[in-house]
Design a protein around this nucleic acid. Structure first.
Length: 827
DNA sequence: TACCAGAGGAG
DNA sequence: AAATCCTCTGGTA
């Protein structure tokens, strides 16, 4: 143990030992407060008897490391830092020497302890200026996470603590002071052990909601026991009606605090419901108190959307995780619900809610209360779908569930690495500063290999793919910044880009990744022997998904310019090895008499003359055996599927049908969000006609049908809507694409259009650019849509791309019946 | 016609 | 706030 000197004696727990008691707490949330300048970490959770606990730790302090300049002595630097003229203005209250792994060697660092998290920034800036300090490290690790990592705390599992129960004003639960950690148990909560609730608010407003003046008229809540709808002034069947908005908010707070939920979830609750409720509470002379410590809801603005803070409860906004974990054309609550349940749900727009509230009437027999109720049910359904995976991600990364729900893939990987680095005594690299990041962004490298497909209709084929190609390359070849170009292994394990990786000692990243990959394959093994309806099966599935998300993120992480463990050479080597493996596979398949129809990165489609069905599958199996016997390490090629028919249009654009008749479409307009429904539906019918019936003539007929419908104006406007996302703020666009042009006009009309908004437009007839003729569907008369545009630019191109390989030309598809057309014009 | 910016997909 | 590869559109010179 390294020597440790302090300027201030640390609080001793020994004296209070007699009055201390031990308890075990399931950890839900962790944060800290500062009392009289002293940081107190609070662990929120529930004890084994189910009582809510806040345990307070006051002997944990923030710290960071100072790396001495090369040649400078760590001890001397430490003494300098501890000297009053440096220590006092820098809030240093202790320092010690610690040895850490750094860039392939052991380095002695000065670990500097600071009095409070709020002083870390200024302190490291001061100490960083000392000439003998080369750089400071680990100063930007959030204090609550530092506590979790250093103490090995496992969120959602059991923490054994000692401490003194103290008097508190909490209505439920108790507070334990002067806590110390006795142990960590691997005893994780599952979803059914958590008290969870979803909520949703309805606002009445005439245009856009303004939290200063437009009231919340209803709050829906749903937990394991049932649903509650709160409203005011008006009566709705099944709803509890309060006197006014303020009373309703008060009632909401009372329910949350009495039921003492562990998890509170909403859809867009971080950026909408909670901030809105906070403002409405203020307008009504109240404070929105939802914290487990009876604190008010907080709000921290963020780069994209802010984050609402409910102290002590796990606050999950399902919107972001849904966006990340599900690939959907739309992420409106009703659309996500529809996708998951297969049932439709009516979404009310702001104006409809307003009208119904004002009139007190029902729309199509349903009141606002019914819609509010369906909103919370939809939210709960989404929670059931994705919360299990979030829970598993939290268990694997040991991050708080509320953090996991807000982090991207790179952050999940990074925090997993940081925790592991701490365990192994590895110094955590700093985040790159902006010039370094800019430099990294410029250094691009070559990625996966894509083979030009054999175009047109193909018969019987089999697809093979590498099981987790990039993760298995990283593990097999020990790809890691610390193993790269070692002195011991020159000339062995050389990547196609020239770097070699140590074959003697396992690298940091590969050793962590191999654990994840192994666990996943064990779980998948287990699952293959289980009944799919078994509840344990779905838990395994969530575990497996979480491990997959994490394993697949490592490669991208090493090539990510903002990563602490960035290494272009590593990312480059992985991709280069990937290209080598797929190219070798293609060559071997060819030399074994197969035709290789298409290949992309880690997969290939093959066929063999005179072989079909089972015969082809047998042949492919033999090829697979041969290939796998020569693949190194854990890299493995797998049988993916058999397709009796399919066609390739270009790279990354094709459609296949499998033996059960299921159609898989990749890249074509059908699967894209930015084409009109009429264009996508027509293409879908073309694909079906060809793959299901092998009937291009019927396909052509489908196209003519759509052309006719558009010409006759019998297509409903909603099928003509083109949706495009604003990927940046309006003023940042260089070009004047249709959705940008419309967005600019809408802004002049007083609409606020932010980055991320979806612009939905219909093209109307007239002269000039498409952008000038793009209109909101609500502003378009069915007589005004541009028939020619929809035929020439929406229906024909996607369908033609498929049908041209069957010998069709544009004119063959254009007119259903030329004479009829002429007659119509005159009739 | 050639080129660019932009969107959104594949793996 | 993961990477690269790729096709296609609309606008512009």
């Amino acid at each position: 143990m390294a020597p440790f000197f302090t300027l201030q004696s640390s609080r001793s727990r020994v004296g209070k030992m007699s009055s201390k008691k031990s308890s075990a707490v399931y950890v839900h949330e962790v944060d800290y407060v500062v009392h009289d300048g002293v940081p107190v970490v609070r662990v929120f959770g529930r004890d084994l008897s189910g009582r809510s606990v806040i345990s307070r730790f006051s002997d944990f302090l923030p710290y960071f490391y100072c790396m001495p300049e090369t040649g400078a002595d760590a001890g001397k630097l430490m003494r300098r830092i501890l000297s009053p003229e440096v220590a006092e203005p820098s809030h240093v209250i202790g320092a010690g020497i610690e040895s850490k792994h750094w860039e392939g060697r052991k380095a002695d660092l000065v670990r500097v302890t600071i009095d409070s998290p709020r002083n870390v920034r200024s302190s490291r800036s001061n100490l960083g200026k000392i000439p003998a300090v080369e750089d400071t490290y680990e100063k930007d690790i959030l204090f609550k996470r530092r506590f979790i990592i250093d103490n090995g705390v496992q969120p959602l599992s059991v923490l054994s603590i000692t401490g003194q129960e103290i008097e508190s004003k909490l209505p439920v639960g108790y507070v334990v002071e002067d806590c110390g950690i006795e142990g960590i148990e691997d005893n994780y909560l599952s979803i059914s052990d958590l008290r969870l609730a979803v909520f949703d608010i309805e606002v009445s407003c005439s245009t856009a909601p303004d939290s200063e003046k437009d009231p919340i008229i209803m709050i829906g809540m749903l937990d394991g026991e049932g649903k509650r709808i709160l409203t005011w002034q008006r009566e709705f069947p099944g709803a509890e009606s309060l006197e006014d908005e303020g009373s309703m908010l008060k009632r909401f707070m009372d329910i949350i605090n009495e039921k003492d939920y562990d998890v509170l979830m909403g859809y867009n609750s971080d950026s909408f419901d909670l901030p809105y409720m906070k403002t409405r509470a203020r307008v009504n002379g109240l404070r929105l108190v939802l914290g487990r410590d009876l604190s008010e809801v907080g709000y921290r603005p963020g780069p994209i959307t802010g984050r609402s803070i409910i102290k002590g409860r796990i606050n999950v906004d399902l919107y972001q995780p849904v966006r990340r974990m599900l690939n959907l054309p739309s992420y409106r609550l009703c659309d996500v619900y529809e996708h998951l349940s297969g049932r439709t749900k009516k979404e009310l727009d702001m104006v409809e809610v307003h009208d119904l509230w004002e009139s007190g009437e029902a729309l199509d027999g349903a009141s606002i209360a019914d819609y509010c109720s369906s909103d919370v049910e939809a939210t709960m359904l989404i929670a059931r779908e994705i919360l299990p995976t979030l829970l598993e991600l939290s268990k694997t990364t040991k991050l708080l569930l509320s953090d996991v729900a807000r982090m991207g893939q790179s952050q999940l990987v990074e925090w997993l690495l940081i925790r592991e680095a701490h365990r192994r005594g590895i110094l955590v690299p700093n985040k790159p500063r902006s010039p370094e990041m800019a430099r990294r962004r410029r250094e691009t490298y070559e990625g996966g290999y894509v083979l030009e497909p054999r175009k047109g209709l193909q018969g019987d084929m089999v697809s093979l793919d590498f099981r987790s190609l990039y993760p298995t390359i990283i593990v097999t070849h020990n790809v890691d910044p610390s193993t790269m170009d070692c002195e011991c292994c020159e000339g062995t394990n050389v990547s196609p880009t020239g770097q070699h990786f140590c074959t003697q000692k396992p690298g940091f990243i590969p050793s962590i990744l191999s654990g994840l990959v192994e666990r996943r394959s064990e779980i998948k093994q287990e699952m293959s022997r289980m009944d799919e309806k078994d509840q344990k099966y779905s838990i395994r599935d969530a575990m497996q998904k979480a491990l997959k998300i994490l394993s697949n993120s490592f490669y991208g992480y090493t090539g990510y310019p903002a990563a602490r463990w960035y290494s272009r050479e590593c990312a480059q080597s992985v991709a280069a090895w990937g290209r080598e493996y797929i190219r070798t596979t293609i060559e071997t398949a060819k030399s074994e008499g197969f035709q290789v129809l298409y290949s992309d990165t880690d997969s290939l489609f093959i066929s063999k003359t005179d072989y079909e069905g089972e015969g082809l599958i047998d042949e492919a199996d033999q090829l697979l055996g041969k290939l796998n016997s020569s693949l190194p390490g854990i890299i493995q090629l797998e049988y993916q599927g058999h397709y009796p028919r399919g066609f390739f249009v270009t790279k990354k654009r094709y459609a296949l049908i499998d033996d059960s008749g299921e159609i898989f479409t990749k890249g074509l307009e059908v699967v894209r969000r930015d084409w009109s429904p009429i264009a996508k539906d027509t293409q879908r019918r073309v694909i079906r006609a060809i793959l299901e019936d092998g009937d291009p003539q019927r396909a052509a007929e489908e196209v003519r049908g759509s052309v006719k419908a558009v010409s006759e104006r019998s297509v409903p406007l909603e099928d003509l809507v083109i949706r495009t996302t604003m990927t940046k703020d309006i003023e940042d666009y260089e070009s004047e694409a249709p959705h940008v042009a419309l967005a600019r006009r809408l802004e002049l009309r007083g609409h606020e259009i932010k980055k991320g908004a979806t612009i939905e437009y219909v093209v109307v007839k007239g002269q000039g650019k498409v952008g000038d003729r793009a209109r909101l569907a609500e502003d378009v008369d069915p007589e005004d849509y541009d028939i020619d545009y929809y035929i020439e630019n929406q229906i024909l191109p996607p369908s033609m791309r498929i049908l041209q390989s069957f010998g069709y030309r544009v004119d063959d598809l254009k007119y259903h019946n030329t004479k009829q057309q002429t007659l119509d014009l005159f009739g």
